[in-house]
Design a protein around this nucleic acid. Structure first.
Lengths: 206, 206
DNA sequence: TGCTGATTTGACCAATTGGTCAATGTCACG
DNA sequence: CGTGACATTGACCAATTGGTCAAATCAGCA
């Protein structure tokens, strides 16, 4: 689908196009985005886009594939040998950092899922699901050993996704509701979520 | 913007159109939706749509406005005189029920917010923000009285929104990850979220 | 320098977009 | 059974869509 970049120029332009595509797709979704818009943001002509990518969909698929590579890293990093509460709060912190540092990627993903994930079914079932099941059973193990309080591990993971990605995906709402406190939203969120995780999971309920 | 329906036929057709619009807008966002698609789902001709609504945007705006009316009811119902933990778990339960019973409405809202809420800024700052501030101070009052454990009330509300709406907005992801457990997702979520809220808020940390 | 392949684009295309309008059909009510 | 308002639509429009292509330009190398 995506030709391997061979020259300097190819690498540079493909990155420019993907960055522009990320801008536009994350803001309007696949169907709402147009090649003209992407070309304009990229500073290239439309035929030039199609010299590097065979179609609009190819740009989108390339973005989603590259995204999934790094998107799940925080969950992969969950260490079965680590201290349970520390591991899970660290996971939340990493996810929150991703929402802060890569909001466009989060929104691209959210758009795709909300619209039924038509171009991601296989990657979700083939890669995401096994990873989630694996980490859920690690968490279940911790719970069985009494190292953290019991709660459905899958829904625990879903809640962590929901709460952390919310700060990227619903940014416009936060901005409207928080007013002047908007600038501190990530610091406040980190404190709040750490408290939440600790009370939910710490054996003492601390 | 939207003419008041005068006849039976008008009322019926406007509802048919709005329902079709909800289908299409919630799946593709504003720019990704087309009048032809809405007309097809509604079972009407395109010029007939435009006989009842002056433009594509008018349908969208009407949907959003009607939605906001009922979307915030669960939060409005939060009773300052009630028992704090019971009130907040009831709020979570009502929000979760809305995700279960009105997933299209949730996705319509999510699409609009993700795309920067270009058509909702004023309703967010004029209606949502005052309501959130009011309820946040109710919650803060409960915390100050020691009736629930302390935590940032605004971020508590955000987390409740995130976790409950996640079950509507990211349905495709849940389906892929949960597999056969997918059918029980709402029952499981209710149990999980009740546990979470209780541990987070109950003075004993129960 | 000249050559060759990589890069860029103006012009173009068929299909689709949101929207208009005149003509037609239908319904309620006197 | 008229008749006037309500309802419906086929035909059409200009603009935009994703995508093509031949011609022009550029970069690097012998």
């Amino acid at each position: 689908m995506t030709p391997r970049p061979r020259t300097r120029i190819q690498r540079k332009n493909m990155n420019v196009i993907l960055d522009a595509g990320l801008d536009v797709f994350s803001q309007h979704g696949f169907r709402g985005a147009t090649l003209d818009q992407i070309a304009q943001v990229a500073g290239l002509s439309k035929p030039n886009l199609l010299y590097y990518f065979p179609s609009k969909e190819a740009i989108h698929v390339t973005l989603l594939t590259r995204l999934m590579d790094t998107w799940l890293d925080p969950l992969r990093d969950l260490d079965p040998e680590g201290e349970p509460v520390a591991e899970l709060t660290a996971y939340v912190r990493r996810k929150l950092e991703m929402s802060r540092d890569f909001p466009r990627e989060s929104r691209l993903f959210a758009n795709e899922i909300i619209q039924g994930a038509p171009r991601m079914q296989e990657v979700l079932t083939d890669h995401l699901r096994p990873l989630v099941d694996e980490k859920a059973s690690v968490i279940a193990g911790w719970m069985a050993e009494g190292r953290i309080r019991a709660a459905d591990p899958h829904h625990l993971i879903f809640s962590i996704w929901a709460m952390t990605q919310h700060y990227a995906d619903f940014d416009a709402q936060l901005c409207a509701v928080l007013g002047p406190r908007y600038d501190a939203r990530f610091e406040e969120a980190e404190v709040f979520l750490e408290t939440l995780m600790r009370r939910l999971l710490s054996p003492g309920g601390a």
